[in-house]
C-alpha cells in the first residue's frame, strides 16, 4: 500500500509577515509626546498647615503641661524677626552677602525689591558669586539649633510673611527651619511642622 504521489508533495507556504510600520509610527509619536509631558525637573513638597480658626473641637483635650513655645518667624523686607512665647528673641537683618548665581539665573535673590539697582544673575553666571542684599538664613538656622537644644520636643514653627515678601523667601525660611546638616554629616531635624499665618500689615 503506497502513498499517492500527491500526498508526498511538499509545498513551501510563506508565513505572512506582520506589517510593523504603523506600530513604529505610533511609537514614534507616543514616545516624544510622553517625553515632553514628563517632568524634566525633580520635585518635592513641604507640608504646611494653616492656623486653626475657632474653638478646639476636642473638649476632652488636656491642657498642655508647658505654655506653648509659639516659635514665630516674622518676615519683612528688612529681615527676619524671631520670637519665643511672644517675646522677641533675635533679629536677622538683610545685609550684603556674596550669593552663588546658580539658583537665581535670570533674576536676583530676595528681597528683589531691594536689589533692583544690581545687575541680575545671567544664565551663563551659574558658578559666579555676586554681592546682593539677602536674608541671613544661616544665622536663623544657627539660632533655631539653639532653640531646639533648649526645647527638644518642640517641632512647630509659625511663619508670618509680610505683604511684600515673595514666596521664595517663605520657602527659604521653611528650609532653614526644617533641618540642619551637622558637622558629622548627619541631618538633624529642627522644626518641621510649619504653620503659615498672615503677617502684620505693612510688614
Amino acid at each position: 500500500m503506497g502513498f499517492s504521489p500527491t500526498s508526498k508533495r511538499h509545498y513551501e507556504v510563506d508565513e505572512p509577515e506582520l506589517n510593523l510600520n504603523p506600530m513604529m509610527d505610533l511609537f514614534g509619536v507616543l514616545i516624544p509626546a510622553l517625553l515632553m509631558m514628563s517632568a524634566a525637573v525633580e520635585v518635592s513638597v513641604i507640608n504646611v498647615a494653616a492656623p486653626s480658626i475657632g474653638p478646639s473641637t476636642n473638649a476632652d483635650q488636656k491642657p498642655p503641661e508647658h505654655p506653648p513655645l509659639n516659635l514665630t518667624v516674622v518676615i519683612s523686607e528688612t529681615g527676619y524677626s524671631l520670637s519665643l512665647m511672644g517675646q522677641m528673641a533675635a533679629d536677622f537683618p538683610v545685609a550684603e552677602r556674596p550669593i552663588l548665581c546658580s539658583r537665581y539665573r535670570g533674576t536676583r535673590p530676595t528681597p528683589r525689591a531691594r536689589n533692583l539697582d544690581r545687575p541680575i544673575c545671567q544664565k551663563s553666571e551659574g558658578r559666579m558669586k555676586k554681592q546682593f542684599l539677602t536674608y541671613d538664613n544661616k544665622g536663623l538656622t544657627n539660632k533655631l539649633v539653639e532653640v531646639k537644644d533648649e526645647f527638644p520636643d518642640e517641632r512647630r514653627i509659625i511663619i508670618q510673611p509680610g505683604p511684600e515678601v515673595e514666596y521664595e523667601t517663605i520657602v527659604d525660611v521653611m528650609d532653614a527651619a526644617r533641618d540642619v546638616k551637622t558637622a558629622k554629616g548627619e541631618i538633624r531635624s529642627l522644626f518641621d511642622e510649619v504653620v503659615m499665618s498672615p503677617g502684620p500689615p505693612g510688614g
Binding site: V43, N47, A50, P161
Partner: peptide, 25 residues
C-alpha cells in the same frame, strides 16, 4: 507675593481642604 498664597490657603481651608503642600523644585 505672600498675600496670594495666604488667601489661597484660607479659601481652600473654607472649602474643606485641611492639608496643604507646597510643590518645589
Amino acid at each position: 507675593p505672600s498675600p496670594a498664597i495666604v488667601k489661597v490657603m484660607y479659601t481652600a481651608g473654607l472649602a474643606e481642604y485641611g492639608k496643604f503642600k507646597f510643590l518645589l523644585v
